[in-house]
Design a protein around this nucleic acid. Structure first.
Lengths: 229, 229
DNA sequence: CGATTGAGTTCTGTATACAGAAGCCTGTAT
DNA sequence: ATACAGGCTTCTGTATACAGAACTCAATCG
């Protein structure tokens, strides 16, 4: 009984909901959605007024945004929305590939039958979205599938890094990238089969080529010649 | 002339040295060195007084420390030094292995002759430290070698992640881990040879087994049976 | 007419002040 | 003696105030 209470206490019903967190989420959303353009100067007072809070929570949120790589904090000049270079985008894709590969390997080692079942459900969801041409749902299904594989992998550190890197990749390629089509979901299908068999090497290899194809797919859509900056 | 001045201006002589950065470094140092033990409650006012600043820069530093995973910020309760579980430590080692492997592959692809030369110098340094039994120098040489490989890899995103993960790994295993001996430096030697040849697959494979041996080496030194928490 | 220097303005960096919540200790009642 | 309740203390969360640095723009000099 006592342990039950202790466990219950660890999940408080009401979160005090710190303002800095709300501010962080709001700013991240503004950056990812493109409302704040790369290189833009973020004036603390303006943000504070716009969000209806004081400068203090804004500053704390900016600190976290810097560590997460969303803004650059120049001393005595304030915060600027991070401007990713093409180099950085390419590097992000490379890192994501190895992390996702590892994720697939672990998932294959740890997957329980019910996990595999859930994977097939998610796969089915994506295939349906593809057939209906529902782009938004297709993107969501793709994210859901990859996220679930990561959760099956059971490595929280890995999940955290994949989340960070993936968000940045999505941000950078959102303006130009359309989701990949039928081919990608065929690859998913083979991937799930490998995970179901517990074949870590094969799952990793499939994920590796899968993310590399996605990388090529993105790169091919890049606008040519913004290489000056 | 004008360009020369512009270039010179980009490297300011005196950095305004924001306090929050100094505070961040100081606190990180205190945590890594063990002066602040895991789970310990960090009272802002105490830290501020101890460092001779106000609470404001302390709070900003704590935000960054949280995002970097060094402290946990509980709402309305303040900051606590992060307590890594054994699971987390194991996960860190796994992630580090794949990142280092990727790093070695890239390094093999990009290495110039002068890079290889520098690698052999660092290798030599480590071998000498090993022969002299200079533990501190040995650890430094090992870090320097791995860091240089990462820099040759030329992926800043990767370097950032390896840095973060590596620091955490070192922190967690510092109390118990002694550096590996001759075997590790033989592996380094074969690794450099592969990089010199530009053989990415082989370099990656050597790095993979190298980090896995290190992982096993660490795990074997773990105190048995703290598995209850 | 162009470059440069200076004052004025704006914004950041830091400190201080205050309100609210969480934890602790004490006192009382059973 | 123990358990509970209430007040008290401490700490966090947020807001405001002030000093200093950086940028801007205009006026002056070459």
């Amino acid at each position: 009984m006592r342990e039950a209470l202790t466990a219950a206490a660890s999940r408080r019903v009401t979160r005090p909901a710190p303002l800095r967190q709300a501010v962080y989420d709001a700013l991240a959303e503004l950056i990812i959605s493109g409302s704040l353009t790369p290189g833009q100067h973020l004036v603390e007072a303006e943000l504070a007024e716009h969000l209806g809070v004081s400068r203090q929570p804004v500053r704390e949120a900016l600190q976290r945004l810097q560590t997460a790589g969303w803004v650059d904090l120049r001393p005595a000049q304030g915060a600027f929305v991070h401007s990713p270079t093409e180099d950085e985008a390419a590097q992000l894709l490379g890192v994501r590939a190895v992390l996702e590969t590892y994720s697939a390997q672990l998932a294959a080692q740890n997957a329980e039958p019910e996990d595999v079942e859930r994977l097939w459900e998610l796969q089915q969801d994506g295939v349906e979205a593809l057939a209906e041409g529902d782009v938004k749902r297709l993107v969501a299904a793709n994210t859901a599938l990859h996220d679930f594989i990561t959760s099956v992998a059971g490595n929280a550190v890995l999940a955290e890094l994949i989340g960070q890197v993936g968000q940045k990749v999505r941000w950078y390629y959102t303006p130009i990238a359309k989701p990949r089509g039928k081919e990608a979901w065929n690859e998913h299908s083979r991937l799930i089969e490998a995970i179901a068999k517990g074949d870590a090497d094969r799952a990793g290899e499939i994920m590796r080529s899968h993310t590399e194809r996605t990388t090529d797919f993105y790169r091919r859509q890049l606008p040519a010649g913004t290489s000056q900056d």
